[in-house]
Design a protein around this nucleic acid. Structure first.
Lengths: 145, 145
DNA sequence: GTTTAAACCGATGAAACGCCGGATTGATGA
DNA sequence: TCATCAATCCGGCGTTTCATCGGTTTAAAC
């Protein structure tokens, strides 16, 4: 009876973070278990939502050309309406609630400067927003989230 | 002679975004090519950095408890050294170069407040950094990157 | 002490893999 | 025009991995 993820699970996850397409048999050799045992572990991790999926990481070429970070200060501390509005904007690909001077960080993607400009304007005019501050993302130095 | 990614490449990428561990043979059936042709396409996409890797997506249970955004102002506009130092810190999971008052945004993950505090201190004391501003991430409102 | 279920192993036939030779196609330049 | 060259694809090969299952061990639960 095991519920908690143990050291072996962590090692499996670590290897999959490096390369999710590695064969199960190779994982098994890495951690010193049989292939079928590893297979069962992965099924458990997936079923328990510890692992929610496997995806491909794309380089800049296939990603949207322009990215920006938008720091947002709310008028009241009720973020729900603003977050909902942001979520309806397809260009808005991420939104975090933060502590400090600003209340939200939104990450925005666009294909052209004009498009980005339009999106930033649209965000700035949303109801419930006091102030915004935008930074164009010049490059992704690294990303291992 | 093909350089640009075509519709088939996009379909392959789309399938891999859903599940990066799907067998190449299944991808081949999906797009109507031979297995070896798909294998060559993937090698091309990887070599051209269109695809940079494959990773596992983790649920909340396995994710770090605490996240923070660190805005970084450099002393000179030479980011290479600082970025390299940040990349060596395992807690630092992402780094973007931006325009504006600050030069870099780093995203930091930690399991405890003490650990986060230590990481932020460590970043603040790196050579080449003039000033930093940190915001704890209270919650991820949405993320569809 | 018995029951029960989780976790593992090893075996087996089917499927997928890496690798390579050969056909096709379309652009390049003699 | 026609030979050349590289890109792209296919199919086949031996090897590896896969899904699945029965059987063993372990340890908590009763």
């Amino acid at each position: 009876m095991k519920r908690r993820i143990d050291e072996t699970d962590r090692r499996l996850i670590a290897r999959l973070q490096e390369n999710a397409r590695i064969p199960t048999a190779a994982l098994a050799r890495d951690v010193g278990l049989s292939r079928s045992a590893v297979q069962e572990r992965l099924e458990r991790l997936e079923k328990s939502q510890t692992i929610t999926g496997y995806t491909v990481q794309l380089g800049d070429t296939a990603r949207p050309v322009l990215l920006a970070e938008v720091m947002i200060q709310l008028e009241q501390k009720q973020s729900a309406g603003v977050v909902g509005a942001l979520q309806k904007i397809p260009h808005c690909i991420r939104c975090l609630a933060i502590s400090g001077e600003y209340d939200l960080i939104a990450e925005v993607a666009a294909d052209t400067p004009e498009e980005l400009d339009g999106v930033l304007d649209r965000i700035g005019e949303l109801a419930g927003i006091k102030r915004t501050s935008s930074s164009i993302i010049l490059s992704t130095k690294f990303d291992r989230r």
